[in-house]
């Protein structure tokens, strides 16, 4: 019972954070909302018994991405100028699309039962360096590429 309560508490927390990101007018409130959402999701990971993932989520997202977003917002912040959201008609249409997407997702995944694990492996390290080694290596390449790309994109503008 308490498990379900924990789940819903964390879920509500995540929803609230997401709503803040989507609707807030203030840049700092957006960052706080995003942080709340990320932490809530990390909590849900823990709830599902994936401690390492939760820790990674906290480190990478909260420590990395969130700080990046914060920097970017502070660098570029011009809040209060222009409209927060798209014009009315489009706003409603986007809401419809989003609601439709949520409904479709819920309907699709509701009855989905993942196939039972053939070789239940609880050891994350063994999985990453075993069957998922190619993906793991590719991730390394991706990170490197992203790093170089960011440098080129940002630095390139300066040189021009």
């Amino acid at each position: 019972m308490s498990a379900t309560v924990t789940f819903w508490l964390l879920g509500a927390f995540a929803l609230a954070g997401a709503a803040a990101v989507v609707f807030s007018r203030d840049a700092l409130r957006l960052v706080v909302g995003l942080g709340a959402f990320l932490l809530a999701v990390a909590g849900l990971y823990l709830y599902y018994g994936m401690g390492f993932l939760a820790a990674a989520q906290v480190f990478v997202y909260v420590g990395g991405v969130l700080v990046l977003v914060l920097f970017a917002l502070l660098l570029l912040s011009r809040d209060g100028r222009g409209r927060l959201l798209a014009p009315g008609g489009f706003d409603l249409a986007a809401a419809a699309v989003a609601a439709g997407m949520a409904a479709v997702l819920a309907l699709t995944l509701r009855d989905f039962r993942p196939p039972g694990a053939q070789a239940a492996q609880a050891d994350l390290g063994a999985t990453l360096l075993g069957p998922m080694l190619p993906a793991f290596e590719l991730l390394g390449v991706l990170l490197l590429a992203a790093l170089v790309a960011t440098l080129v994109i940002v630095g390139g503008g300066e040189r021009k």
Partner: peptide, 16 residues
């Protein structure tokens, strides 16, 4: 964003 909305709408329609 208009393009993204179209993609989203199309996805919803197709999946539906």
């Amino acid at each position: 964003q208009w393009y993204a909305a179209l993609i989203g709408a199309a996805t919803v329609l197709l999946v539906a």
